[in-house]
């Protein structure tokens, strides 16, 4: 019995750690984009290394949680939902990392006149993901308060859509850029906006899990 208690305490801590990793990955992503736009290549490389490590740690935590959930047959009625949630959040960490890698690989040139819009888009994406983290914490600890955060995910996702549309219009109406540059920039905008879309999808799934768990 003591062993079960100990394992459970560990799994609670592991889930908290995993959510911390997710939250920090978002912040690192934001700071990485800022650094890239400021042209500090060395610091950007360090950020990429950090987010890669963070992604590995997140993977390890997820696997450890999954293994414990199955081996100890914990929370049998919500196990599938919890695993879905963790995998979705892990995929979002991958997206944060993947986007920074894309900056590094493609070495995209972003005209300073678009910098503020890019930064705002990234800030809103991180806000959406942060609201998702808070919703997830509530799902585990305080299900009755989850509504306070869930709607914010949708709010920030809509904001991201607005900025993304506005930014793409500005890019394509610009007369100085070549079409190839415009298309590359558009892909980047869509790629970043996609993170907020996925965060909203995860929040939608979470709302179903909440209904299933409601007492």
């Amino acid at each position: 019995m003591d062993n079960i208690l100990k394992k459970n305490t560990t799994i609670e801590k592991e889930i908290d750690d995993f959510l911390n990793q997710f939250s920090e990955a978002g912040l690192l992503f934001k700071s990485g984009v800022d650094i890239y736009l400021s042209g500090k290549k060395d610091r950007f490389q360090r950020t990429i290394d950090e987010i890669t490590q963070m992604e590995h740690k997140g993977d390890a935590l997820r696997r450890s949680i999954e293994e414990k959930l199955y081996r100890k047959t914990l929370i049998p009625e919500s196990r599938g939902d919890v695993l879905d949630l963790l995998e979705s959040l892990d995929a979002l960490i991958d997206r944060f990392k993947g986007t920074l890698y894309r900056f590094d690989i493609e070495c995209i040139e972003i005209d300073p006149k678009f910098h503020d819009d890019f930064k705002e888009l990234v800030r809103n994406v991180v806000n959406a993901s942060e609201a998702l983290v808070q919703s997830s914490r509530c799902f585990f600890k305080d299900i009755s308060s989850i509504a306070n955060y869930m709607h914010k995910v949708s709010f920030w996702e809509t904001e991201c859509d607005k900025i993304s549309t506005m930014l793409q219009k500005r890019i394509f109406r610009d007369t100085e850029l070549r079409l190839s540059q415009k298309m590359q920039l558009r892909d980047f905008v869509r790629h970043i906006d996609k993170i907020a879309d996925r965060a909203e999808d995860v929040a939608d799934d979470l709302s179903i899990f909440v209904i299933k768990r409601s007492l």
Binding site: N8, I11, E12, I15, F140, K141, D142, L215
Partner: peptide, 21 residues
């Protein structure tokens, strides 16, 4: 029980442990 769970904000895994015992 619903009142207790809501009032004390019991973690999903703690609740699982209590329920099991």
């Amino acid at each position: 029980i619903v009142f207790i769970i809501k009032s004390f904000k019991i973690h999903m895994f703690t609740l699982d442990r209590y329920t099991r015992n």
